[in-house]
Amino acid sequence: MLQQLTNLSDKELISRARKLKDQEAEGVLMERYSHLIVAVCLPYLNNGPGTAPEELYPTLLQRLSSSLKTQTISRTNEWIHYTIRAQQAKTDRNIPYFPTTESREQQLVEGQVEKAASNLKEQELLINKMQKALKELPAEDKYFLQKFYMEQRTFADLAEAKKISIEKARQRLQQAKQKMASLLMNETYE
């Protein structure tokens, strides 16, 4: 059973955990992200009361489990990240996770690309549209996107070329991508 569950996607596991109240599916999902959760939480361990690893991780898992049953989760990694940050911030008010507009736009474009993968004509149309959007982007953003995606440069290369940190380079890329996604979405709405 566990073997079968590990082959399922995040969405399927979440739906199983919700509809069938399958705790095994929930466990498999947590297991899939456990190493990332551990890594992200490491700097916050032993920082105060209730931050011992024996205490922090079970409570975090509990929180995730209860949140899983009530919230709409479009991207698992975003949801986990949000929940960890919320716990680390120790906010009294538990604001539920909700994907941002940017995130949703990106997701929609990702969906379009995935859909067009099986249809060449549709793919061609989408490529044209994306090229048009790319041209409309500011030169800086265009540069980052072209270098990273077309020329397959690494973060380190980009950071070095622009003389910025890797973190900054990633951030610029993220922003450029976000802009392009919103351009594409606005275009389709028009």
Binding site: L36, V38, A39, V40, L42, N77, E78, K177
Partner: peptide
């Protein structure tokens, strides 16, 4: 993937520090 995923990027950032790296494996 790292361009979009804050979780993975954060994890990498944390693990780049040696002190956390040592703790990571047993805790994971």
């Amino acid at each position: 993937h790292l361009v979009d995923c804050d979780l993975c990027f954060d994890a990498l950032q944390v693990l780049q520090q040696q002190q956390h790296r040592e703790k990571y494996l047993p805790m994971s």
